Simulated scan of single mutants.
Amino acid sequence: MKDLLGLMGKAKEMQAKFQAMQEEIAALEATGQSGGGLVKVTLTGKFEMTKLEIDPSLLKSDEAEILEDLVLAAHNDAKGKVEAAMQEKTKELTAGLPIPPGMKLPF
């Protein structure tokens, strides 16, 4: 019976830690860039774009396709950074837990 109570206590503790981690991740910001810094995109931990910076030299009507590609590349760069930060925070929280490989947390 003690083991069950201990397990329940650990489950509540993990739930609180996951809640705190989710709040921490939501507060994250990552900036991705492309074109050598000519285009920059800032995303939150919820993958919401909060900022877009475009160098004025790219604002030419005949270069719209290039600009579109650079914005997409900067967005993907920022998204990759947010995902890496989320993975690192999850790894820190679940260190030592017997979680099967490939299982993604938080659910």
Rank of each mutant, 00 (worst) to 15 (best):
M1Q: 02
M1E: 08
K2H: 14
K2V: 14
D3F: 14
D3I: 12
L5V: 13
G6V: 04
G6N: 11
L7Y: 08
M8G: 00
M8E: 01
G9L: 10
G9T: 02
K10E: 15
K10A: 14
K10P: 04
K10G: 09
A11V: 12
A11C: 14
A11G: 10
K12L: 12
K12G: 08
M14A: 05
Q15V: 05
A16P: 09
K17T: 15
K17C: 14
K17P: 10
K17E: 14
F18S: 07
F18R: 09
Q19M: 10
Q19V: 06
A20P: 09
M21I: 02
M21T: 05
Q22M: 08
E23N: 15
E24S: 04
E24T: 04
I25Y: 03
I25S: 05
I25Q: 02
A26K: 09
A26W: 06
A26D: 13
A26H: 08
A27F: 02
A27I: 03
L28T: 03
L28E: 05
A30D: 00
T31P: 02
T31I: 07
G32Q: 06
G32K: 01
G32L: 04
G32Y: 10
G32V: 07
Q33K: 13
S34T: 01
S34N: 02
G37M: 10
L38R: 04
V39D: 06
K40L: 14
V41G: 00
T42D: 06
T42C: 05
T42S: 01
T42L: 06
L43T: 00
L43E: 00
L43R: 00
L43H: 00
T44V: 14
T44G: 07
T44M: 12
G45E: 08
K46C: 12
K46S: 14
F47G: 00
E48K: 06
E48Q: 03
E48H: 01
M49G: 09
T50K: 14
T50C: 09
K51R: 14
K51A: 12
I54C: 09
D55L: 10
P56E: 09
S57T: 04
S57F: 03
S57D: 08
L59I: 11
K60I: 05
K60V: 07
D62W: 09
D62S: 14
E65P: 11
L67W: 03
L67Y: 02
E68L: 13
L70G: 01
L70D: 00
L70Q: 00
L70S: 00
L72A: 12
A74S: 11
A74P: 01
A74K: 00
H75W: 10
H75D: 15
N76L: 14
D77M: 10
A78C: 07
A78Q: 01
K79E: 11
K79S: 08
G80E: 13
G80D: 12
A85Y: 10
M86E: 06
Q87H: 14
E88R: 07
E88Y: 02
K89S: 02
T90Q: 01
T90K: 00
T90H: 00
T90L: 00
K91W: 04
K91H: 05
T94K: 07
T94Q: 04
G96A: 04
L97P: 04
L97N: 08
P98V: 03
P98A: 09
I99D: 08
I99A: 06
I99F: 05
I99Y: 07
P100M: 02
P100A: 07
P100Q: 09
G102F: 02
K104W: 11
K104F: 05
L105F: 03
P106Y: 07
P106H: 13
F107P: 02
F107K: 05
F107S: 08
